[in-house]
Design a protein around this nucleic acid. Structure first.
Lengths: 201, 201
DNA sequence: ATTTTATTCAACCAAATGGTTGAACTATAT
DNA sequence: ATATAGTTCAACCATTTGGTTGAATAAAAT
């Protein structure tokens, strides 16, 4: 087993934990080194600077979320199946990485241009079949008329917000960690129903 | 006109801008001083430390959002009117303070305990009449059955998420600033409809 | 008018922080 | 075995950053 890869990955995982929790500005190279259980200068040996290490973590975080979302939207599934898969995917991903969405959103807002360039470089785009599929469902009366942008943002909002605002939700509703897990699980069932609750007549 | 108040407020407003945009860790006392157009030591003269200045800004930001939300939920209005008022309130507030929600969520997650204590000290609680009101609407079949917690989180999610994820929305959907404003305005009409779109039969 | 208090700021300080260096050590190739 | 390349780390460095000081100035109180 190659030792160097082990160390490099150890560093990367530690950096991921620290950056995702504290953000770029709040993270300390020393803390990452401690978390990785190595000397601080190793960070610079494998990743030349804080900036570079951060970028790898950030871009990997973005790649964990968007390509999968696009893949689901691009598949041949029915719209309802897609929505269910998106909800399921977010639920699974963020139960394991609770800081991920908050982290990406925060850092994205710190450097919008950099983010835009990265997204474009990765060819991340909403598939246009998705819009057509939605149009069909609207005609069938299963969804109230709205632009695809709104439809997508609605789904993502309902999934992400509780995770991002976890502290708030737990505070306002007096939920301990188990309660919160249950709360998220309930939403997994609820969100598709809200999205497909039919039109108002 | 008292000069001291002017300077103090100047500092506070500058701190608000810088902290809301960069967060506590990313904010620099020098930048706040520059933004307030005063010497750096004035910051410490009026607010003893970065921490103290930050706390004032953070707590004031929280107070800008929650009491008003609670007030709307506690009023004697119909449920639908309440929802419309919440949507309207968020729309107006965050059009003027686009970094506010992101800021509060980020810092809240950095210090959950501190946040909980503050919320409790402010007696911020979801009024219980709200739950009863929702129960009535569910019985009338205007809303699908769900716990009040989910109902509230749904509304807040649909309102806040686009603001928090502004960069993402603009990137994915190629919206310039005017397009984005229009997008938010559309949501002001859309969100109450989505919330009250009736039950699936 | 004079003392006292509040306000402002340039210069300074100590600690934290990202980053470097050079020597020691290990593994691999020849 | 020896040379080469890769890996590790303690000690060090330069800069940034939050914070202090003391003197100057303005305002208020006596």
């Amino acid at each position: 087993m190659p030792l160097e890869k082990q160390t490099e990955e150890q560093i990367f995982l530690a950096a991921q934990r620290v950056f995702q929790e504290k953000g770029f500005a709040g993270a300390r190279m020393q803390e990452i080194a401690d978390e990785a259980d190595i000397n601080k200068s190793m960070l610079h040996y494998y990743y030349r600077s804080k900036e570079k290490l951060f970028l790898e973590v950030f871009q990997s975080s973005v790649k964990k979320v968007f390509p999968q979302l696009i893949a689901i939207l691009s598949s041949g599934d029915e719209l309802e199946a897609k929505v269910k898969k998106v909800v399921e995917f977010y639920y699974n991903t963020f139960r394991k990485n609770p800081y991920l969405p908050s982290f990406v959103l925060h850092e994205m807002n710190q450097h919008p241009k950099r983010f835009k360039e990265f997204i474009n470089s990765q060819n991340i785009r909403i598939p246009k079949e998705f819009a057509e599929q939605l149009e069909t469902e609207i005609e069938k009366g299963r969804i109230m008329p709205m632009k695809p942008t709104h439809f997508l943002i609605n789904i993502v909002s309902l999934c992400l917000m509780p995770v991002i605002a976890r502290t708030l939700v737990q505070t306002l509703f007096s939920l301990d960690d188990d309660d919160f897990d249950a709360f998220l699980a309930e939403r997994k069932e609820l969100i598709p129903k809200v999205i497909f609750s039919g039109v108002q007549t």
